[in-house]
């Protein structure tokens, strides 16, 4: 059922707005794809909208050729992202459960501080993290990057997990206790299975955050072999003279998009249901 009955003119305006926005949302990406799959000789002025022949040379070139960045940077990004996702999921589950189930006097204040921290984006953390890692000798290590990613994802993760646990009735836990289950069994058989959707969302968001991260590894990882693709792809941009190898940069970007877009495609309903922050921001 439609909520509002619109006039014909209003419907037309709505269709136009939705259509234009759709073009705005997808055309830039389609352009990247179109440059990535056409031979380099076609990526010159004057450009044709559609490629006249298709090739995978650019993609194989990025991944395997001598002027490519190789698989390493993607593997690095995956490793950092997955590690951060696991740590974030564990820490957020623990913290979210504590805040959802125990009424602590300082609990609400804590939630607000965590909320405020989650509003500080990664850019404002580059200098602080550079200072911290340099001062502690963690500079350039994988642990530093992974923990820095996780610390960035945990605040939202705790919020989402607190929301998830609040939606699991306490009565189910009480029922499990009465049925004779101790703490471990209650968690393993009743609480965690019901929290899995929330945990998946938190882990996914953390993975995407880590996979996408650029400024933190840019400043925290000096060694080329340990850098993720976001940093490695810069080799196709020569700032002097603005020479950019667009076919390879587009192909490299396309490869980077595939994991996030597939994860998003699988989990988008769940991600949307969580309502971003909306679901967690209450009480």
């Amino acid at each position: 059922m439609e909520l509002v009955r619109l006039s014909g003119l209003q419907r037309l305006a709505r269709a136009a707005a939705v259509g234009l926005a759709l073009a705005f949302a997808v055309l830039p990406l389609l352009w990247v794809v179109s440059i990535a799959v056409r031979p380099g000789t076609q990526a010159v002025y004057p450009i044709s909208i559609l490629p006249t022949s298709l090739t995978l040379d650019n993609i194989t070139g990025v991944l395997f050729a001598s002027n490519g960045i190789g698989l390493g940077p993607y593997r690095n990004a995956a490793f950092y992202g997955l590690s951060s996702a696991v740590i974030t999921a564990v820490a957020s589950t623990l913290g979210g459960y504590a805040l959802a189930r125990y009424s602590m006097r300082s609990g609400e204040a804590l939630l607000i501080v965590i909320l405020a921290l989650s509003f500080l984006p990664s850019a404002s953390r580059i200098v602080p993290l550079f200072i911290l890692t340099s001062a502690t000798g963690l500079y350039g290590t994988a642990q530093a990057v992974i923990l820095a990613y996780a610390a960035g994802s945990i605040p939202l993760g705790i919020w989402l997990m607190a929301g998830t646990f609040r939606q699991i009735p306490v009565r189910l836990e009480q029922a499990a206790r009465i049925d004779g289950a101790g703490t471990v069994l209650t968690m393993r058989r009743v609480v965690l299975p019901l929290a899995i959707p929330g945990i998946l969302v938190v882990a996914t968001l953390a993975f995407i955050d880590g996979w996408n991260s650029f400024s933190l590894p840019l400043i925290l990882i000096p060694k080329a072999a340990a850098q993720p693709y976001t940093v490695a792809l810069q080799r196709y941009i020569q700032e002097i003279g603005y020479g950019i190898n667009w076919p390879l940069l587009s192909a490299g970007s396309l490869v980077a998009l595939l994991p996030v877009l597939s994860v998003f495609a699988i989990l988008q309903r769940r991600l949307v249901r969580v309502g971003g922050l909306g679901g967690a921001i209450r009480g």
């Binding site: 759709l22 990406l29 996408n212 996030v260 877009l261 998003f264 991600l271």
Partner: peptide, 8 residues
């Protein structure tokens, strides 16, 4: 519409 939201 949400695709750009997940891109680096």
């Amino acid at each position: 519409y949400l695709i750009p939201w997940v891109i680096a």
